[in-house]
């Protein structure tokens, strides 16, 4: 089946600045893909190109098999887009605004009459539909932007930072809404909040300095990098004995231990990739008659991966720069 989004070798240069540098990726129908990167990584630029607001400097971009530059209007009919900062006409009423937008999106009158109450309901806006947008709270405005994106039942939803500036309760509501929408739409959303993608997306694309650094499911990313994380063990028992026996447990790569108080040892165990030695550790402790006070696996979070990947990239970049400097000297 044709992918929903197909980006090949996309490059975007603004006066002197390369915002995107040879970006390629695909999004399949039905996926929820998270676009992850620090501020200024090129997320919004990619989204603006996908929606036809600005063109690429080079490369091919297709949405549902249509070239976004050649068939700009057809692509825009198929995409629901919520731009960064969610710009809205603040002097309009919610229902008035959605009516205006549905006309622009070419919804026939009959369909409009059905669809507007539907999206108002879906986004929890029914009670404020007669309020002026400028007087609504940020959370409600965000939902108005989302409702607008949903109006024409687009194949593809592109949401640029949909939860920015919301309070924790609102964030949770918007995330749930996105998850529900994912059942019927393909979604590409950008964020720099990591738990967001972990919770809502089936796939993560990490972008940094206009380049894609990784693209995988959140679980796979965690597996490939730092498999399994560390295991924290706290045991009441003779220090050196505990260390020696735990190091010998099947699946343990290395350990580091620290005496914390009378007769207690705190051990950080690094497991071999793909292994989970927690049961072995418990059995060893029990067999020696020590007391187990704690056994925890600290999961590697996407945040660790993100920091690690972008940091490695920054170091590599710094190295390249250093080399260039030494060549010049």
């Amino acid at each position: 089946m044709q992918p929903m989004i197909k980006v090949e070798n996309l490059t975007k240069r603004y006066a002197g600045v390369t915002a995107l540098n040879g970006v390629s990726f695909e999004v399949q129908r039905g996926e929820i893909v998270g676009f992850l990167g620090p501020n200024g990584a090129g997320k919004s630029t990619t989204m603006r190109i996908l929606t036809g607001f600005i063109p690429a400097s080079s490369g091919r971009v297709e949405v549902a098999g249509l070239d976004v530059f050649e068939n700009s209007l057809e692509v825009r009919e198929r995409v629901g887009y919520m731009p960064e900062n969610n710009p809205l006409y603040v002097d309009m009423r919610v229902s008035e605004y959605l009516k205006f937008r549905s006309k622009l999106k070419g919804l026939p009158r009959v369909e409009r009459k059905e669809r507007i109450p539907e999206v108002l309901e879906m986004c929890g806006l029914t009670d404020v539909s007669h309020r002026i947008i400028g007087q609504l709270s940020k959370g409600y405005r965000q939902r108005v932007g989302l409702a607008d994106a949903l109006l024409a039942e687009p194949d593809l939803l592109i949401l640029d930072e949909p939860t920015i500036g919301l309070d924790p309760v609102q964030i949770r509501q918007v995330r749930q809404l996105i998850k529900d929408l994912g059942k019927r739409h393909t979604i590409l959303l950008s964020t720099h909040i990591l738990p967001e993608v972990e919770m809502t997306c089936n796939r993560v694309i990490i972008i940094h300095h206009g380049r894609i650094l990784a693209s995988d499911t959140p679980d796979n990313l965690m597996k490939t990098l730092h498999a399994g994380g560390l295991i924290q063990v706290e045991v009441r028992g003779p220090g050196s004995d505990v260390q020696a026996k735990l190091r010998a447990v099947e699946g343990v790569e290395s350990i580091s231990a620290k005496l914390i108080e009378d007769g207690c040892v705190r051990v950080a165990v690094t497991p071999k990739p793909g292994d989970d030695p927690r049961e072995g550790i418990y059995q060893t402790v029990a067999a020696n008659g020590w007391t187990l006070r704690e056994l925890t696996r600290t999961r590697t979070t996407l945040e660790d991966i993100f920091v690690q990947i972008t940091h490695e990239e920054d170091e590599a970049e710094e190295e390249r720069r250093e080399q260039r400097r030494s060549v010049l000297r």
């Binding site: 731009p83 937008r101 999106k105």
Partner: peptide, 14 residues
Amino acid sequence: RAGTLEMLMTAPVT
């Protein structure tokens, strides 16, 4: 300035 041009121009409008 308000960015509403982006939302206008990404609708199927010339």
